[in-house]
Amino acid sequence: MSNDIKMLHTVNKSPFERNSLESCLRLAKDGSAVLLIEDAVYGALLNTSVSDQVAARTGNLRVCVLGADLNARGLADKPLIDGVEIVDYGGFVDLACEHDTVQSWL
């Protein structure tokens, strides 16, 4: 099986309501990137009931969050899980370019 392919996973659901982030983290291979957008940005926050789940993978996944969606939800003043990077839409485009396929966990 070819493992040369690098994946970008996007998640857009709040982890407090849906299992999209959990499923994404279960299936995402080490070396992949995960980008949290829309209501999934809540999954980037520190000190929540799902922080540990995300933090457990920040060492082997590149975890990013869309800044515009954080700001829209009043989260700019909240600390994020260590290792989570904030990107803008241009950064989203770059992530899509740097990875071979994009899977959206809707």
């Binding site: 803008d88 839409y89 770059d94």
Partner: peptide, 30 residues
């Protein structure tokens, strides 16, 4: 880039996200 949009413009954010992504991709010369 090809973009697939699955939601209408008012109930979900998806269409806006898709539009902003498309604009950003074009702005970067893609």
């Amino acid at each position: 880039f090809g973009i697939l949009v699955n939601e209408g413009p008012f109930t979900h954010q998806a269409s806006d996200s898709a539009y902003l992504f498309a604009k950003a991709a074009i702005a970067k010369g893609h």
